[in-house]
Design a binder for these strands. Structure first.
Length: 266
DNA sequence: CGCATTTGACCTGCGC
DNA sequence: GCGCAGGTCAAATGCG
């Protein structure tokens, strides 16, 4: 009967392990959910704040432009209808080029000085694929010369050759002058409460220069995550701490493997 | 030489 | 119909 009792002990030990792993799995899921929620919150906050900034800009532009054909709300609707999206791109203020590195290849086909803004507006067509209908307009912000306003129209009929560079231009530091770029999507939320403080978000997780980027925002109002239990100042810090934790990595890998294979822990 | 950029001319749409 | 402003075209130019 010794064999029987030892098997029973083994089964109990395995059940204990299984219970531990279940709890670990639950906590991991909880953490993932919390991080997802925080990301969504930050994203929606950014969009709202950016549109508030754009609202001011548009108000100024419409005051200056008697030929304005759309109201602010109409602008918002048109943005959705015609598949246009607008991004604020922070660049080196000394950089006079209107180049926005977004992972696609663009051919410039025109430049025009508009009435409401002394900075010229450049017109680009996507040249990565023949027949790609996407166009973009790039113009410096009237209020902040270090900010480029990039307006994209249409949808690409191909993929970016560099998916990492797509909308992650701060990764690309080799471009002439474009050494410090942050993208801020400016679309969809129809709220235009004036706010004097635009915000930018550096979406890269590239470590050291994140600190500089976050403190070097347009107005020092870059978003930082006050973190889990006040321990982590930024999501990046939290993620970095997690990725450095060997136990976390191993547990996460095991949990993911179990989820993928749909198998209980042995 | 081929390709991208520049830039003046031209086209288009809208308000008056 | 005219004028204005944004958008596009295409010849000229520059660069590798």
């Amino acid at each position: 009967m010794d064999a029987h009792s030892s098997n029973k002990e083994k089964a109990e030990a395995l059940q204990e392990d299984l219970e531990c792993m279940r709890k670990e799995n639950e906590s991991l899921r909880f953490m993932l959910e919390v991080m997802t929620r925080k990301c969504n919150t930050i994203e929606s906050h950014l969009r709202q704040r950016n549109l508030e900034y754009m609202g001011i800009d548009l108000n100024h532009q419409f005051e200056a432009n008697k030929r304005a054909r759309t109201s602010i709300n109409e602008f918002s609707l048109a943005t959705n209808k015609s598949q246009t999206s607008q991004f604020l791109v922070r660049t080196n203020s000394k950089d006079s080029t209107l180049v926005v590195k977004d992972g696609y290849q663009w051919r410039k086909y025109g430049q025009k000085v508009t009435k409401d803004n002394p900075s010229p507006r450049a017109y680009f067509r996507c040249s990565m694929a023949p027949g790609c209908p996407v166009k973009k307009k790039v113009q410096r912000s009237k209020d902040d010369k270090s900010v480029l306003i990039a307006t994209y129209e249409g949808q690409h009929n191909h993929d970016s050759h560099d998916s990492h560079a797509h909308f992650s231009p701060s990764i690309n530091t080799s471009a002439k002058g474009a050494e410090h770029i942050n993208f801020v999507p400016a679309e969809s939320t129809p709220t235009f409460t004036p706010s004097p403080q635009p915000i930018t978000l550096d979406l890269t997780l590239s470590g050291s220069n994140n600190q500089e980027n976050s403190s070097g925002g347009l107005d020092g109002n870059s978003v930082s995550d006050r973190g889990f239990n006040g321990k982590y100042n930024k999501i990046e810090d939290f993620v970095a701490s997690l990725t450095k934790d060997k136990n976390f990595t191993v547990s996460l890998a095991a949990a993911v493997a179990r989820c993928v294979t749909n198998q209980p822990k042995p």
